[in-house]
């Protein structure tokens, strides 16, 4: 056998219709993980404004830290991004619990159901939180 044919990655994302629950859970967990670690770095960057706060200005809430956060929160886009962040975090937490159960060898035969449950629960929590996130003063 001098030759053989390599088809490369046959099971690439083009076959997404054939993916099963466990595969979707993995894809979502990885995606939300990337978002969260990206947010962690951004979050610390934004909060770094706390280093340059002028104590006098802080007394009247006119310091750079308070202003930066208030400025961001006044943007509707940021509010929607926060809802997205909540969705991402809640799913990562719930599916994370599912994965810890899998690691402990608990309920592996219903791993697909627990994935659907974490999806549904994420949806419910996010929908219920929308008023809290979009409400409040949008200056």
């Amino acid at each position: 056998m001098s030759q053989s044919y390599n088809r490369g990655t046959v099971e690439d994302f083009g076959r997404w219709r054939e993916f099963t629950a466990g595969m979707w859970a993995w894809i979502f967990h990885k995606f939300t993980g990337w978002v969260l670690v990206g947010y962690l770095f951004t979050h610390i960057a934004v909060l770094s404004t706390a280093i340059n706060v002028d104590p006098a200005a802080a007394q009247s809430s006119a310091d750079i830290y308070t202003n930066t956060i208030a400025g961001l929160e006044s943007l509707l886009v940021v509010r929607f991004l926060e809802v997205g962040l909540l969705a991402v975090a809640v799913f990562h937490i719930l599916n994370g619990i599912r994965l810890l159960m899998v690691d402990l060898g608990v309920g592996l035969e219903s791993q697909d159901k627990s994935f659907y449950a974490s999806l549904v629960l994420t949806g419910a929590i996010v929908v219920a939180s929308v008023p809290t996130f979009l409400g409040g003063k949008l200056v």
Binding site: T20, A21, G22, M23, A25, W26, L99, V102, D103, L104, G105, L108, E109, Q111, D112
Partner: peptide
Amino acid sequence: CQTQFSCTEVCPKDIPLTEHIQALKR
């Protein structure tokens, strides 16, 4: 192993492969 359960889904002899891999991790 990333516990995608693909192997467990396709095993024609219904071996709980993911379960066994997890057991060995522990």
